[in-house]
Design a protein around this nucleic acid. Structure first.
Lengths: 346, 346
DNA sequence: CTGAAAGCGCTAACAG
DNA sequence: CTGTTAGCGCTTTCAG
């Protein structure tokens, strides 16, 4: 016999399927004679009955699934977030459908369509794109969602993001405390909300601390990658900028700096201090271990999950933005400037 | 109006839902007047109709989903495998449901149950456990599946695994070529099939190359983690073993060695050469960059996907095992022995 | 408290 | 070629 159905249980218990259904569902169990309920339940699990959520979903219009849209699963940023999400979704009886968009807008459209056709009850979206017609459309169509890593401007949408402002300030202040004054910024792409937020925070922090906020000391990296980080630092140096420390908008960009330093025969932190952002795994194994601003990824995923579940349960609840506090993790890539005598100079 | 149903399309086109269904499904489109079909299709997408795979699944007993069971998503080994899988599943119209078991057997049972109740059509399983009643049970119940990273002994089950034998031999030969003769093994847990296979391959390779296969030169790590790797190397040193190189059964265990070396004031590769296994990301950024045996993760996922799709399409096809060729990636953690004069010694 | 009946959206015989 | 009928497994009125 194949996996038993509700009918089989009902037959075996000598009751109507409807009664069996009520007995088996904790929420409706009260509607049924305690004795009958007990019997049905016993029979159900002696038969190894497992309810079929698909059939249930067809009736109730609840699939028990939520769509998770991320740029790329192999970006080490995401797995811990996904675990955090999973840890709240699973106990609530939800399963996540994860898709990787590779940052491709059309692919994202297609994948979101496919998720919606699979009747997901909500979406967790991790695009950083500033401009995003798709999101606005989804929002206007009443799709429940929460954004992570991006706070949508104008849009009344749930979000959970690291507090970029305090994160960057932590980084800048740390460098200032070490005695750095000429601090450069390798900004992330300004087409992304995090890129913009971190850049803005950098300039604000510099001014707040009375440090020179020289435009020549910051440059935009085209992508959030090592290659772009390397290119950025090279360009800064080629332009003749002088600085003893650099704040990278994320860890991968910081790693790109390591490549450039190696290729120029410079040393970190002696010749240049570097601070990353995110707190990826294995940063402590690098040479030198990277000082970074750590984000509570797992918690971020968890908050996103909770927000989404609430949005599903209470559709009228207004959207909320939760900001997670980042932490400065000091490691070997930052030190007082000029330890080996001379500042970085072209 | 909510998302339109097949009925809406049929009504708008003035045909019966069944006809609309046939027209919309490429496989049955031939059964319908080309003209009618065209009209239905046009109406369908003018209405923005998207078929509901859940309803379809209920009827056809095909959910279009695959369960993917891994120990831990945050293990950097898995994301590329999952991408490889996704890249073959998605075009085939399948979606993966990913669960992390944390290596916990009970949790695994529960999660697999939950996947099965969600009517997955097949399972991709990445447990390395040697003993695994659950797998045998699933197999005997006729669940379509493919194992990754583990070749089940006895069980007639599809699998795709790296060729541990040639991988380890590559590692040992590389060290031998550099002039090492006393090579230690930090074995993985012998409760896992990969742990056993790699250990066996190590001993065989040593003997084949005429090197001393001294039992004192190998030790089993309790888990595949940095901590266990560190503990293993410490134990080996504490026991007074002499060796100039170590083969770690995976990259994390190798990273554990770095910690011990740092804590003892020893240097890699000068005092000890280290080679890892897997080819995790960011290994090239470590200090020193880790020499490792790289596995084609993405391809591994892809093969697993293909095998599973075939197993679903042709249930009677006999199971197959595909072995993927690993590659030696030489980096800074290996060099000739005794570069700085003295071998590692307690 | 329990049974009967209907239907979620779709597809698969079976007629016509 | 197309319409009718029935039903996937479950829940939910509505009666009783």
């Amino acid at each position: 016999m194949q996996t038993p159905t509700l009918r089989d249980v009902a037959d075996a218990a000598g009751v109507h399927p409807a009664t069996a259904s009520r007995a088996l569902n904790p929420a409706t169990r009260g509607l049924v004679n305690a004795e009958t309920a007990r019997r049905v339940i016993k029979i159900a699990d002696s038969l190894g009955y497992r309810p079929n959520p698909i059939a249930r979903g067809l009736k109730t219009a609840k699939s028990g699934t939520i769509g998770i849209v991320i740029p790329d699963l192999t970006n080490p940023l995401f797995p811990p977030i996904l675990r955090g999400l999973e840890d709240v979704l699973e106990p609530a009886g939800y399963t996540g459908l994860i898709v990787s968009t590779d940052g491709d807008y059309d692919r994202e459209r297609t994948l979101v369509e496919s998720l919606r056709s699979r009747q997901v009850e909500g979406l967790v979206v991790a695009t950083a794109m500033l401009e995003h017609p798709l999101l606005e459309q989804l929002h206007s169509e009443g799709v429940r969602m929460v954004m992570i890593n991006r706070r949508p401007r104008g849009l009344d949408v749930n979000s959970v993001t690291p507090d970029d402002g305090v994160g960057i300030e932590l980084a800048v202040r740390h460098l200032a405390d070490l005695g750095h004054t000429r601090i450069a910024l390798l900004a992330g792409p300004q087409t992304t909300s995090t890129g913009v937020a971190r850049s803005r925070a950098f300039h604000t922090s510099m001014r707040d601390l009375g440090l020179p906020d020289d435009p020549a000391l910051s440059i935009e990296c085209a992508t959030w990658t090592e290659a772009a980080g390397a290119a950025g630092l090279r360009a800064l140096r080629a332009a003749g900028a002088e600085f003893t420390a650099v704040v990278a908008s994320n860890d991968l960009i910081a790693l790109g700096c390591y490549d450039v330093l190696a290729e120029c025969g410079l040393r970190c932190p002696d010749d240049l201090s570097v601070v990353g952002f995110n707190g990826m795994p294995f940063l402590d194994k690098l040479a030198p271990p990277l000082t970074t601003i750590a984000i509570p990824h797992h918690q971020l995923g968890g908050e996103a999950g909770r927000l989404l579940l609430e949005a599903i349960a209470e559709p009228d609840r207004p959207a909320r933005s939760v900001l997670l506090p980042p932490a400065l993790v000091v490691r070997g890539s930052t030190d007082s400037p000029g330890r080996s005598g001379r500042p970085t100079r072209q």
